[in-house]
């Protein structure tokens, strides 16, 4: 039996427990940096993707909210004012000269002006935006369905992912891998709520929120919804883009499938 009234033994046990704890934590840090162990941990993402995709049909919708639910203060995260000189020039001109380049594995690559996108059928949705950090905001988004754009240019059979390249550089790097980009698969690309939004809360999308165009992928976390979209490419694989994991945050350890 352990006698807790004896201070020396209590101190010893406390010391032993804290040393063991510190050792275990140091061990976890070591494991966190081991490539082999990270591969094991990454199977959690595979499970999330397989199970959540099995639970969701291509038409399962994210909840849409009422006007009254719209957040008064929608947090703008990540880049809020890209420094890229070409982007600055476009912004100063109200994005009149901005063109969305749609290409890659498509039948007829083409450029879209904002007016072209606005002339297409639009979708408006009031949805909850969930940041990977843990907070949520509700906003009203209006834009053109990504599916409509993709159908216009026509996908080649080998296309498996849609890659969006952005104007913002979120991290300064020598090799250019600090530029924001994202990729989604065709199931999300063709989802009815996946839109290229040009309006937010009934007004033209502001620069902090991604003007002139941002993606909405309502069944995933915020980092899957890039702002300042400049190019859209259909690809077979994203292994040779950025650092090969399919997105700016994915290249920095975050899950490619961000359904949770």
């Amino acid at each position: 039996m352990i006698d807790f009234k004896r201070p020396s033994r209590r101190a010893f046990l406390f010391g032993a427990a804290s040393s063991l704890g510190a050792l275990a934590l140091a061990g976890c840090d070591g494991l966190s940096q081991s490539d082999r162990f990270r591969k094991v941990l990454y199977t959690g993402e595979d499970m999330n993707r397989l199970v959540q995709r099995a639970l969701l049909s291509p038409a399962t919708m994210a909840r849409e909210f009422a006007e009254a639910d719209i957040s008064a203060n929608f947090k703008a995260n990540g880049s809020t004012n890209p420094e890229d000189p070409a982007y600055r020039a476009l912004a100063e001109n109200g994005f009149a000269d901005w063109r969305l380049k749609v290409g890659g594995l498509v039948e007829t690559p083409r450029d879209y002006a904002l007016a072209d996108l606005r002339a297409m059928p639009s979708r408006t949705q009031i949805t909850r935006h969930d940041c990977v950090e843990g907070w949520s905001c509700i906003g009203k988004w209006t834009g053109v369905q990504l599916a409509a754009v993709i159908q216009q240019v026509g996908l080649k059979p080998s296309a498996r992912y849609i890659v969006l390249t952005c104007a913002d550089e979120l991290e300064k790097t020598l090799d250019g891998t600090g530029r924001y980009y994202e990729s989604i698969d065709l199931e999300d690309a063709f989802h009815p709520q996946t839109i290229l939004a040009y309006d937010m809360n009934g007004e033209t999308l502001s620069i902090p929120h991604g003007a002139p165009l941002r993606l909405r992928v309502e069944r995933q976390l915020g980092y899957k919804m890039p702002k300042y979209v400049m190019r859209i490419d259909a690809v077979e694989s994203f292994a040779d883009l950025g650092r090969g994991r399919g997105g700016f945050w994915e290249d920095r350890g975050y899950d490619w499938y961000a359904g949770i």
């Binding site: 704890g21 140091a26 976890c28 199977t43 959690g44 350890g253």
Partner: peptide, 23 residues
């Protein structure tokens, strides 16, 4: 630091641990 895995700030890796062990 002594209550988090990893001990240093790393949300991405914290999430990896969390979901793997959640399963």
């Amino acid at each position: 630091s002594w209550l988090t895995v990893p001990t240093y700030r790393d949300l991405a890796t914290g999430r990896r641990w969390h979901f793997f062990f959640a399963w």
